[in-house]
Design a protein around this nucleic acid. Sequence first.
DNA 1: GAGACGTGGTC
DNA 2: TGACCAAGTCT
Length: 354
Amino acid sequence: MSDSFAHRLLAWYDTNGRHDLPWHHDRNPYRVWVSEIMLQQTQVTTVIPYFEAFMRRFPDVEALASAPVDDVLSHWSGLGYYARARNLQKAAQQVVENHNGQFPEDLEQLQTLPGIGRSTAAAIIAQAFQRRAAILDGNVKRVLARYHAIAGWPGKTSVLNLLWARAEEHTPKERIRDYTQAIMDLGAMVCTRSRPACESCPLRTGCEAYARGETGLYPGSKPKKTKPEKTTWMVILQDHDGRILLERRPPSGIWGGLWSLPELDPAYGPDELPEACEQAFGFNCGEPALTSGFRHTFSHYHLHIRPARLTVHSSAQVKDAENHRWIHRDKALALGLPAPIRTLLTSPEQSVLL
DNA sequence: GAGACGTGGTC
DNA sequence: TGACCAAGTCT
């Protein structure tokens, strides 16, 4: 039912909303889908340049499906959550092979594609097919939690279910595309996390949190936990030509599918590194030169990185040639080597800014 | 249910 | 400076 909530929101959107984002032009399921995946946990201003470059290189689902995976990853460099890029291409291949190149128009079917969950599927239904579907992203959660004074952290299933129920309730049958954009815009521009602009909010009347003067209490915050500390070796393996070894990281885990300095088990002591390298790569190495380690903070843990530089004595081939490559020192320096954290690559030729 | 997955912005 | 968060999904 399109209640007063939806009407007030749409009236606000008509004069105050964002109507000119790149994915609003030439709107088709492919462009909507790519934008929705890029926008997961990522802000609009960050996404815009990536979206435009991505569309130039992969203008349609066939182009994406048939591209080399390293090419897809290189266009994702710096965006983070690289599983999104891998899933994006897998999904493109499924659309081409199983759906004749056309995106399914059904909520459940969309969710069978990798990387598409309930909210993204609904966003595609609403934005691309203009059919009624309720979304519930971070913006909508905040708006609804405040409007209905829904207490508790939205990560909790019970709270999430309450929010979904309200989202369904407010979603209108008419102007579904605009409504979907409108409620996200309100969350991003007015009903912000800190210092919301309640005085210019079309939903001020009826907002329970505002009436109580308690907008700061909603949505409830996540339970605090101390971040675990992890440690790793990152080795700078150099041969007599000055070349440095890179390793393709496994598809899952941190920086999945990207290239970086090889990592070794932190259980090895400094003295055991030559032996560990011999086992892992097949090289006879000299004594490691250790430089001071540093800490890199991620969403869920602190990573203590210990760089170790070793020189390769034997000129044998690398053991696992498929997943290792040498790059020349000049190139390595240009990429910022040997600072290990700056050596992430989407292919040995391309650097990633971190 | 809880943890993993990234980078950039905010306070 | 560091905790917290952002157009979530997968394991």
